[in-house]
Amino acid sequence: MSIQHFRVALIPFFAAFCLPVFAHPETLVKVKDAEDQLGARVGYIELDLNSGKILESFRPEERFPMMSTFKVLLCGAVLSRVDAGQEQLGRRIHYSQNDLVEYSPVTEKHLTDGMTVRELCSAAITMSDNTAANLLLTTIGGPKELTAFLHNMGDHVTRLDRWEPELNEAIPNDERDTTMPAAMATTLRKLLTGELLTLASRQQLIDWMEADKVAGPLLRSALPAGWFIADKSGAGERGSRGIIAALGPDGKPSRIVVIYTTGSQATMDERNRQIAEIGASLIKHW
């Protein structure tokens, strides 16, 4: 067993022997301040990774656009098919120029040779490549099948209805392509620590998230040296922004954090800054 596999296998073990965790309302004060600064709703939840206990939450059962955070769930569904012998990570998928959609920095470079399922998941999570996500959605049967996968996990809230990039439209009061912070946090925890996926697939999923290259201005910008984070960000229309993450000190994750916002007129930089400040408060009061 590799060191990384050992780390993920012992996530519940280490967490069980940690000192009790206590909620700190100071972080919620910052979440509410972010709402004021952005002029928009902000949803927040913080779960203990081992027990699933909610440590703090704000608007945990209000719907927010998922945006690209759905790509972690998508690759979880792909990995479940791999575990069941219905898919192979090494299978190569070929596609054409007509398949390319807006923001496809990886797939646009491989029109000639195609990409493997493993490479597509890596591109979808680490670079948020939209064509990679659409190609992977095709392998599982489309958005409705991802929703069905989530329902089978016990998540009857999260739903995907459309493809990239239309799913980022974020129309107010439109339930399409949305989740709730509580539902997303619980589902992410199941994917990373539950028995739904094999140990190898859980490790692969967290490795992809740990290698995320496009979430630097968010929670990662607030992390002290030595902290662990595996995350996936999302951005959408109407001032929408979000991030889902597993993080913790001492090089291992111990909490799940989900943050979503929508309806702001603020710039992307300002949305990023507010999420980073929430992260800084979380870490300060850990």
Rank of each mutant, 00 (worst) to 15 (best):
P105G: 08
R273T: 08
E164G: 00
K71S: 00
L160Y: 13
G236N: 03
E169W: 10
A170P: 04
A40N: 02
N272M: 15
E277C: 10
R176W: 10
K190C: 12
A245K: 00
A84G: 09
R41W: 02
G141N: 02
R63Y: 14
L47K: 10
E56R: 10
A225N: 03
L282E: 06
S104V: 11
L197C: 07
D99P: 05
D36S: 09
G216D: 07
A148K: 12
A132F: 00
L197K: 14
I140R: 07
T107M: 03
M268A: 10
L28I: 06
M66E: 04
R81N: 03
T193V: 04
L247W: 04
T138C: 12
D177I: 01
K144P: 03
L191H: 03
Q97F: 11
S128R: 00
P249T: 14
K30S: 14
I125P: 00
E210P: 01
M153F: 04
G226Y: 13
D113C: 03
E145G: 13
A182T: 10
D161Q: 05
G248E: 01
I278C: 12
H156C: 05
G85D: 08
G234A: 11
P165T: 05
T107I: 09
A222G: 07
V72H: 11
V106S: 15
G43L: 01
V31F: 04
T131V: 11
N130T: 13
E237K: 11
S254N: 11
R63G: 12
N50T: 10
L167R: 01
H151Q: 12
P25R: 06
V78D: 01
L150R: 01
G43R: 00
T116C: 15
G141D: 07
A230G: 08
N173L: 11
R176G: 09
E175P: 11
T198E: 10
H94E: 05
D174T: 13
E164C: 00
T267M: 06
V117L: 13
G248C: 07
Y95F: 08
L47M: 04
N152L: 12
N152R: 07
E35K: 07
M180W: 03
L188A: 03
G141S: 15
R92V: 07
K252P: 10
Q204G: 04
L192A: 04
F70I: 14
T131E: 05
A266L: 03
E237G: 11
I45N: 13
G39Y: 04
P217D: 15
A211I: 09
I140K: 11
S128T: 01
K53W: 08
F228T: 05
E175R: 10
H94K: 03
A215E: 11
N134R: 12
L49R: 08
R162V: 08
L28G: 06
D212E: 08
A123F: 06
G76H: 08
I259H: 01
Q203A: 02
M268I: 15
E119R: 09
L73A: 11
P249E: 06
N134Y: 11
R241W: 08
V157W: 14
G216W: 04
K53Q: 07
R238C: 03
L136K: 00
L191G: 06
I278H: 01
K32Y: 15
L137H: 05
R255A: 08
T112I: 15
L218Y: 12
R271A: 15
A280Q: 06
V42Y: 05
V117K: 03
V258R: 00
K32I: 14
L192I: 10
D155W: 01
S240V: 06
N98K: 09
P60G: 05
Q88D: 15
M184Q: 02
K32N: 13
M180T: 03
S254D: 14
R63S: 10
S254V: 05
E210A: 14
K71M: 00
L120M: 05
V42G: 02
F228A: 14
D161G: 05
A225H: 03
P249R: 12
I283R: 03
